[in-house]
């Protein structure tokens, strides 16, 4: 199986790249026909993605979350699963893939450049709490990403509507209120998964390092990202923020998560969290 894995992995990357180009072109040049092509590429890509995900799990015997490549495979799988779920519920919801597919592509590209091979399963990673931690991190990330996808779609459609223009692509998107509600639903989903992720992470940390919380940069960023979403919920529920303002919040809020995963290295060198795991 292992020889076919890289072929499939590269196949997925190319297919997601094609999807991303189609999506971008469709939205920028307002070509509805291109958008309609997307599922025909995304579905086979997802099937191949599932095959890599399952094959890796079966081959190593553990949930694929060991190193950047496996994180991208499993995290991306949840994101695309949710995206396709929306697709099949309502074709018009395909708009969110404008964000989810390119970001998944970036994660996969980064992962495959780093370490696509299966790494030995370090003792530090053998913990059920870790599995819960990673699983919910990925669910949260997928949901937040979709929320920010809805944010972008909302802003695009809203500015089109405001300027009084019509377009085959934006007219087919659901009503603004529907997009806004879907955006918030995914935020809620992500927020709860994120809370469980942090709680499971602290319990794991107590088992592995002997203390629940050590203000490690990755811990700080993930708490901060969660607080940002908590704050945004307050802005909506208590202060009545909605529409464009809220959509902008969710377009940018996802940056917190991306920084947690990628960007901590930019700021500090010492973190106990090594996603590449060479402990």
């Amino acid at each position: 199986m292992s020889w076919i894995e890289p072929i499939l992995a590269w196949g997925i990357i190319y297919l997601y790249a094609i999807c991303s180009i189609l999506l971008l072109t469709a939205f920028v040049f307002e070509k509805d026909r291109l958008l309609r092509l997307v599922p025909y590429i995304l579905v086979p890509a997802f099937v191949a993605h599932t095959a890599v995900f399952v094959a890796r799990w079966v081959r190593t015997g553990y949930f694929p979350a060991n190193g950047e490549f496996e994180n991208a495979i499993s995290g991306g799988w949840f994101t695309i699963l949710l995206t396709l779920g929306l697709f099949f519920r309502k074709k018009e919801l395909s708009g969110v893939s404008l964000i989810t597919v390119p970001v998944t592509l970036l994660f996969l590209g980064y992962g495959i450049m780093k370490n696509p091979a299966a790494l030995p399963h370090a003792a530090t990673l053998k913990s059920s709490w870790l599995v819960i931690h990673v699983l919910f991190a990925q669910l949260a990330f997928g949901a937040y990403l979709i929320a920010s996808g809805f944010g972008v779609v909302y802003l695009l459609k809203e500015s089109k509507t405001r300027t009084g223009g019509t377009s085959p692509i934006y007219d087919k998107l659901p009503q603004l209120t529907v997009i806004e509600e879907l955006m918030f639903k995914f935020v809620i989903y992500g927020f709860i998964a994120d809370a469980i992720m942090i709680a499971a992470g602290t319990i794991w940390a107590k088992d592995l390092w002997g203390s629940y919380w050590s203000w490690d940069p990755v811990e700080v960023w993930s708490l901060a990202s969660w607080l940002i979403y908590g704050l945004s919920i307050h802005l909506k529920v208590q202060m009545g923020w909605r529409g464009r303002r809220l959509a902008w919040v969710y377009v940018f809020a996802v940056l917190g998560i991306i920084i947690t995963y990628w960007g901590v290295d930019l700021f500090v060198k010492n973190t106990q969290h090594v996603f590449g795991v060479q402990s």
Partner: peptide, 8 residues
């Protein structure tokens, strides 16, 4: 939030 992030 600002204080936590300033720690980075």
């Amino acid at each position: 939030l600002a204080l936590f992030l300033s720690g980075l």
